[in-house]
Every structure is written in structure tokens, then in C-alpha cells.
Amino acid sequence: MPAAAAPLRTAGRRALDLLVWGGLALVLIVGFRGAEIWRVGDLASGARNMATLGAEFVRPDFSDLGLYLGQMVLTLEMALWGSVLALILAVPLGLAGARNLAPAWLQQPARRLLDVLRSVPDLVAGALFVAAIGLGPLAGVLALALNTGGVLGKLFAEAVEAVDPGPVEGLRATGAAPLLVALWAVIPQVAPLWVSYFLYRFESNARSATVLSLIGAGGIGQPLFDAINAFAFDKASAIVIVILAAVTGVDLASQWIRARLI
């Protein structure tokens, strides 16, 4: 049926654009004060402190290397288990949270649950778990698992929503039950993406686990924090180098796995 040629941008559209961009500018200006961006000059005036710090950092003290390596391995173990527990959480929630697979009564609650899991930062969750089950790596592992589970679940659900519907409809049409359709038509399609997301989150958890140990969850962050507090920057430098090497190693390994799987 013939439609009148509509103007590409109406006055209303333009007013809306102006409102959006103007609003964004306003938010940035207000935030300038709050975030103390005006203090950025202090970076220069503190140059001497920075120089002292830098000088210590170029002379790393590796005398406690054995301890650092042990703590680094512990940190990676935490990251690994946190990621695996997150995966166990994310697979069912990711399938249940996909609009094209689950009915609304299941999909909406699943998504909201993922929102909640994601909205609690792992540091906060870690502090809560330390209070609940005491100091130690398990508190960190659980904190990583919840937060990462929320993130992975959402990413998994979105990957499922983007699958080619053809094979799904095709298998559904053979009379296969929904669980079988998910297993045989959806998971093969999303598997490479899911693995990739999982590896990214594992890398990022290897970094997060370092920070988590600051709140008593064990791992390499504790000696790093102690060294900085004692102004032992040569030791801190050694620890940072160990962390850099480990995180780089994890990145390289997961890149290698990803390249082979996809």
C-alpha cells in the first residue's frame, strides 16, 4: 500500500536529540565536582612522591618469592573455582532467562535474579561471606561465584536469544521436549560464545581475586597490601610483577584455548 513519504527527521525527533545530548552534558558537568576532576593537577605537584615510589619500584625485592608464588597460585585457584561455580549457576539461569526459550513466568524471575547477583559487587559479597563463614579463600570464591554467575547468566541468556531460530524450530517440530531442544539445538549454537565468555570472566576473576584478598579472603593481595602499608615498595614491586606475569599467563592461555575452540 502506498505510504506518504515521511520526512527523515521530524521536529520532535530533533528536540528529543537535543534533550538527550543536553542532558548528557549536564550530567558530566555535575559529575565533574563530585569526582573531584579539578584536582587532576595534583598529579603534577605530587611528582616528587611519584619519583620516590618509582625509584623503589625499579628495584624489586624478590627475597620472599616462594611466598608470593604460593599466594599467587592460591589466588588463581580461587579464580578458577569461583568461575566454575559461576558457570554451574549461569547455565540453567542463562537458559531460563532467554525469551525465545523460556515462558515469561520463568524468564522474568530468572532475569531479575541475575540482575540481583550482578548488582552486588564482589567486594561487598566477599565482605558479607567473610562475616558469615570467616576469613579464608572460600569467602572470596563464593563472592566471585555469585557476581560472575550473574554476569555470565545474563551474557548466556543474550547469546541464547541471538541463536538462529531455524534449527530450534526444526527440532521442536520433531516433537522433542523443550529440554532436549535446548540441549541439542541451542547449546551447540551458543557453545563457542559461552566458552569465550567464560574464559573472559576467568581472566577478569584472576584480577578480581587479587583485590578480594584485601578483605581477608586470602591470596596474593594480602602481602601486597601489607608491603604498601609498610612502605616496602621494593617488595610491593616484586609482588606486582608476579601478578602481572600470572595474569598475562592466564590471558595467553585462555586466548590459546579460545582460538582452538572456535
Partner: peptide, 22 residues
């Protein structure tokens, strides 16, 4: 309809709907 009843109707689309990675 049960799965067994649905299975009696087979569907073919313009775009082949096999699972590509299997």
C-alpha cells in the same frame, strides 16, 4: 499436543534448519 502427535508433522523451511555444528 503430545510430542508423539507433533512428530507426525514434519516441517521443511526455505532455510535448512539442521543444527550446523552437529
Amino acid at each position: 499436543r503430545s510430542g508423539a502427535v507433533r512428530a507426525r508433522t514434519g516441517l521443511i523451511f526455505q532455510k535448512p534448519n539442521l543444527v550446523g555444528r552437529l
